[in-house]
């Protein structure tokens, strides 16, 4: 296996984690690295443990073995709210908008942190509203009344409120119209230019190949393969092996 070199000082490093849901063993020693500002893809069939990997990094499930570090610091059993404050943003698969909160209140859950001045808050909001003008229009509307695509934008915007160093993006284009999909791709590009790292779980292969620098392939709870995105093509046998039916 010709594994590409990872950056010497990874932003997030996952080393051999095992995660269980009750008695079922989901992750069997997953290891991967994400460099600062790097966009990394995580590909595999349904149920191989991609989402569980993201949840383990976010501290939402606790690995029973293995180690996760963030900027060299061990974070394995830290509570999620501390990780969010350290700079890890999470956009879950089902978006999990606070449905009864307005768009603005949804953003405020991440914005109202200690030590953030009003000017900086306003700058952050302006930036997000410039990306997603539709959210600015609907700022007073309850999150649950937004369309699926708008909810996805809100979920990403909400994670951006934390000014994270890395965003864990779980299937952001699932169920979206093509126009929305290209908008999501654009946002990933913008975040990348801003120096935000991204760990992207996606079923959309062209988008993943285009957006990511490196790609990890998962199967049955472990990372089996690892490749530079630019060296892969959509019809690559590797992709068929890990995603094909």
């Amino acid at each position: 296996m010709s594994a590409p070199q990872t950056s010497p000082q990874p932003l997030v490093s996952v080393e051999g984690i095992h995660t269980y849901y009750g008695k079922s063993h989901i992750l069997h020693g997953v290891s991967l690295d994400i460099g600062p500002g790097e966009v990394v893809g995580l590909i595999g069939r349904n149920g191989v443990g991609k989402s569980t990997t993201l949840k383990s990094i976010m501290g939402l499930v606790s690995p029973s073995e293995g180690k996760i570090t963030f900027q060299g610091q061990a974070i394995t059993h830290q509570p999620p709210h501390k990780l969010a404050r350290l700079g890890i943003g999470y956009v879950p698969e089902d978006r999990r908008i606070f449905k009864l909160l307005t768009v603005m209140e949804n953003l405020r859950t991440g914005l109202d942190r200690a030590g953030v001045e009003d000017a900086r808050k306003q700058a952050l909001l302006d930036k997000v509203f410039a990306f997603f003008p539709v959210l600015a229009e609907r700022r007073r509307q309850a999150g649950g009344t937004l369309s699926g695509g708008e909810q996805q934008m809100l979920a990403i915007a909400r994670a951006m409120m934390l000014e994270p160093r890395i965003i864990l993006l779980d299937e952001p284009t699932e169920g979206l119209m093509p126009r929305m999909v290209s908008q999501i791709k654009e946002i990933i590009g913008v975040l990348h230019r801003d120096g935000v790292a991204i760990l992207l779980v996606e079923q959309n292969v062209p988008l993943t190949l285009e957006a990511c620098q490196r790609i990890y392939f998962m199967e049955k709870g472990v990372v089996r393969h690892h490749a530079i995105a630019s060296k892969l093509s959509v019809n690559d046998p590797v992709i068929h092996q890990y995603l094909g039916v």
Binding site: M58, G59, L60, P79, P80, H81, A84, R85, Y90, P92, R96, F98, K99, L100, L101, E105, N106, R108, T109, G110, D112, R113, R158, M161, L162
Partner: peptide
Amino acid sequence: GRYGIWIRATTQDRVMAQAMGIPVP
């Protein structure tokens, strides 16, 4: 209130509130 929004967010989705940095406990 800022903490009022935290309370409502936690009421709706405890897990996501934590992921947004709200100290749920």
